[in-house]
Design a protein around this nucleic acid. Sequence first.
RNA 1: GCGCCCGUAGCUCAGCGGAUAGAGCAACGGACUUCUAAUCCGUAGGUCGCAGGUUCAAAUCCUGCCGGGCGCGCCA
Length: 548
Amino acid sequence: MKQRIGDLLTQALLLAKDELNISSPPPIRLEVPSLDVYGDFSSNIAISLSERLKKPPLEIAKIIIDHLPPTDLIARIEIAGPGFINIFLKPSAWQEALREVLNLKDRYGSSSGNGKKVLIEFVSANPTGPLHVGHGRGAAVGDTLANILSFCGYEVKREYYINDVGKQMETLGRSVYLRYLELLGRDIEFPQECYQGEYIKELASDILKNSGDKYLHEPEDKVIEYFSSLAAEKILDEIKINLEDFGVFFDCWFSEKTLAKEVRNIIDWLKKRGLTYVKDGATWFATSRFGDEKDRVLIRANGTVTYFASDIAYHHKKIERGFDLLVNIWGADHHGYLPRIRAALMAMGYDLERFKVLLTQLVHLKRKGKPIAMSTRAGKFVTLKEVLKEVGRDAARFMFLTRSIDSHLDFDLELAKEKTMENPVFYVQYAHARICSIEKVATKKGISFPNLEAIDLSPLNLPEEIKLIKLLAQFKEVVKEAAQFFEPHRLSFYLTSLAGEFHKYYNKYRILGEEREITQARFALSQGVKVVIKNGLRLLGVSAPKEM
RNA sequence: GCGCCCGUAGCUCAGCGGAUAGAGCAACGGACUUCUAAUCCGUAGGUCGCAGGUUCAAAUCCUGCCGGGCGCGCCA
C-alpha cells in the first residue's frame, strides 16, 4: 500500500514537473505518522523541495496535490504543519490490503527476485566447552536473520566455523589428561590456564571407564593429542545437540583443520605481494597499511600458524565459494579483531561493502533482578542448555530477539518464565491461540464460513479494524527493513504491537455472534492477523501454538 | 591512553532527521454468567547524560566533555 501511494506521488511530481521546474522527480519518502490526525501516510517532499525550488513548502504541496492522478485509494489529502502532505485512505483501500494478506497466506511478507547468495557465519564457539548464554544470543540472532533474508529472496547458507586448531586444543587435551591422572589417584595441581569446568572431569571419567589406565603408560604428548581430539569431538557433538534443541541448524560445519594447505598458500600469496616481513623470528602481515592500528603475526617464532592466518584463508575460501554477501556474527568482545580481518580482505582486493560484521553485546544473566555471578575461569557459568531447560526454546529465543544487538541484554531467568510482558513471547503466542480458539468455537457452534476469498470485507470500517489492517500491511516493510539493516529485533517489536492491537480489538468487539456479514468479515480479519503472527513467529523460530 | 558499544519514565527497553517522545514491568483504580482474564480499560510518571554546532525541523547528524560496559597477545 505504501508503495502504491508512493508511486502516485511520484506520478504527480512527474506531471507537475514543468510547473515546479524540476527535471526528474526526487525519491518519495513516505512515513506512517505517529498520530492518526496526520493521516495514514505522510510525506515531507514539499518541505524538502522547498529550498531547492525557492518556493514555500505549502505552495509546492498544493501543486503536487493538484497533479495527483485520479485514484480510488485516497479519501482526502491535507496539507499540515510546515508543509506535510497527509494522506487519508478510504477503508476500501485497507480492505484490499487485507485481501492480499489472506490470498498470500504463508507467503505474505516474502519477496523474491533478489537471488543474492549470502553466507551467515555465526556461533562458531570453540569446541573447548559447552555453549553459554552469550552464544545463545548469537545463535538466535544469526538464525533469525538467516530466516529473514531467505524470506526476502536471498539464497542463504548458515555456517559454523570450528576452531579445532591451536594452543587451546592442546590445553583442552592437557586439561582432560590431568583430570584423568587425578582420577587414577595421582596428586595433581590443576593449573589455572586449564579448563576448569566439570565437563572436563566427565570427559576424563568417560575415558577411564572405557580404557582404564592404559594411557598411563604411553608418551604424554601422544596421549594429550589424542585426548584433545576426542574431547573436541565430544564437545562439538554436545554443541550440535544444544543448537538443534534451540532450533538452529547449520548447512555447513567448517573445520579449521581442513584449511592447512590454504593457509600456507595465502601466506605465500601475501609474501609475494610484499605485504609480509620477518621480525623477532615471526612472520608479520602489514595490516597497518590497510587501516589496522598495528601489524599482526601470521607465523609465530615457533613455526606455528596463528588463528588470524587461518581466518584469512577461511575468508579467502568464503569469497571463492561465490557468495555475494558475507555476514559474520561475533560477540562484541571480538570487535578489536575487526580491523585486521578487514585489512586482510582489503589486501585480497575484496569489496568491504560485501562484508558485514554484526557484533552482539554481552548478555548478563539474572535471577529475580539479581545478577548471577559467572566466571569462565572457574568454570562456573550457566550454559545455554540449562537456560533452555529452564525457560524453554520459545521464551529464550524471543528474549534474545527483543533487544537491538547493540544493547546489553539482561536475561532474567525468572522473568523469562513468568507470563508477563517482560517477555512478550506468550503475549504474541496467546493472540495466535485466541484466534485458533475462535475457529474452534465457531465449529462447535455450527457457524460455518465460506472460503476467505468469498468473504465481503467491506463491513470492516471501525477505527480499530482499520488500525489492525494497517499494521498487517506494515508487516512487509518491517520484514524488509529487518533484512536491510540486519535487525531482527524489529520483527519482535512489530509482533508485540500487532498482538496488542488484536487483544484490544478482541476485548472490545465480538467476532462471532454478530450479524452474518459482520461476523464473516471480522473472522476474515482475525485470520489475517493469524497469518501474519504465524509468519512472523516462524521467522523468529518461535512456535505458534493453537492453544495455551 | 587508544578503539567500539551504551546512556530515553523508578526498572527493562523501543524510537535514530519530522509535527504533542512510546511500550512493558513496578504503583494506584476498574472489567470475566458473553469467542481462553497468559487479556483489556483508566490514572500517574520524561529539561531523551551534559554543553556547543548543523538544519525550516535534532532523542535522532557533527564536535567536545561526563558516566557505564567491552576490547587493545607470537590466545581464539
